[in-house]
Design a protein around this nucleic acid. Structure first.
Lengths: 199, 199
DNA sequence: ACTTTAAGCGGACCATGGTCCGCTTGATTG
DNA sequence: CAATCAAGCGGACCATGGTCCGCTTAAAGT
């Protein structure tokens, strides 16, 4: 760990050279990533490809997971836009219940496309919960649950719902156990319906 | 990875010296563990404390996670005995619904006691699903769900239920978010009730 | 422009997980 | 008991994530 400043966030203002190197590194990593598996992406190779020293990578991203998460964050923006401000039923405009139903499949598809990176970024099991993207999802779901008057603890239910479509779980079920994605979508709908049904 | 024999299992029969070294290693690891955090347990120190070479540790346990899981497996036996053959309501003798209700708190308590090791053993997010102990839990819950005539996909519901009391999640919620364990237990009961309630 | 200073940089260095391969030894067979 | 041989062993070796610290430089003040 090595975050000498700004207690919880990245310092909002990077010096010009630092900002340049940051995008240089992100680009280099992306480029390397499309030529090999995420597992083969070494910090040193990224630094070399970006033409900077290894120390710079660590200074900027903290550790390997940090780099991968930053890479992921970028791709995640699309999904976030879709459920925060995109068209219904995922975005605002539909009922909370409909938005909940739409959320699962959307995340499932997003994870299908990005699971190698997502899985590679998860070395520390606790780190996941610190990822801003996850927080956003949790809060969003919790909000929808409240809007839909679903009984129970909204925050915990949100965690439970998201847990049921967690990348690692889904990957395990689809590859090791041969379950089709449709079965998982069905289970999502069942779960949402079940939790939302009037007592 | 380094499992030269027996495709999916440990070879059931270890040579005498190998078996001896295995328990030597497990003991040494246990001993070291009670003197420092799991994070400080290095493979080399375990080997040294057991009086064997480093290669032997890897040959026996595959990798670090394998060693930690083996350590855990031993402690897990108690919990397994409790829900497989212990007294009701956790063990057989109570209704399936009652057993389900009892299961959450039991796991929660078990995880409270062992979370440092459990978390340390989780480096590869996919590896978890290969742990025999987890399989056992999943199958057990799925069976109870069927017995209780809970509607929906028993296997997926089992994953969802267990996910809601996953060690990493619980640790995050109790330490980062300051939630008392009671709140998690309540949520468990709510979830079980909700899923089991007649449509 | 000149000074100042803290952010940034880089690459030598360290720790540790994991591999390899030649040697040793417990089991098995006759 | 001798011979055989696969399982086991150990420690040198390698790859890589992560740290450290002296040097450089962008940026803000005067």
């Amino acid at each position: 760990m090595n975050l000498p400043l700004a207690p919880t966030d990245e310092p909002p203002q990077l010096r010009a050279d630092a900002a340049r190197n940051r995008t240089l590194l992100l680009d280099a990593a992306s480029r390397l990533l499309s030529g090999c598996g995420a597992a083969d992406l070494t910090m040193e190779s990224v630094a070399a490809a970006a033409g900077v020293g290894k120390g710079t990578v660590f200074r900027r991203f903290g550790d390997r997971a940090g780099l991968l998460i930053a890479l992921l964050d970028h791709r995640e923006k699309q999904l976030q836009a879709a459920f925060l401000s995109g068209p219904p039923p995922l975005g605002p405009g539909a009922s909370a219940a409909d938005r909940l139903h739409a959320f699962g499949p959307a995340v499932l598809r997003h994870e299908r496309d990005h699971h190698p990176l997502i899985l590679a970024s998860r070395t520390d099991p606790l780190r996941n919960y610190a990822v801003p993207a996850l927080h956003l999802r949790i809060n969003h779901i919790a909000m929808l649950l409240r809007q839909a008057d679903v009984p129970g603890d909204p925050e915990l239910l949100a965690h439970t719902l998201l847990g049921s479509i967690d990348t690692a779980l889904v990957h395990h079920l689809t590859t090791e156990r041969g379950m089709p994605l449709e079965r998982l979508e069905e289970a999502w709908h069942h779960l949402v319906t079940r939790l939302g049904a009037p007592a």
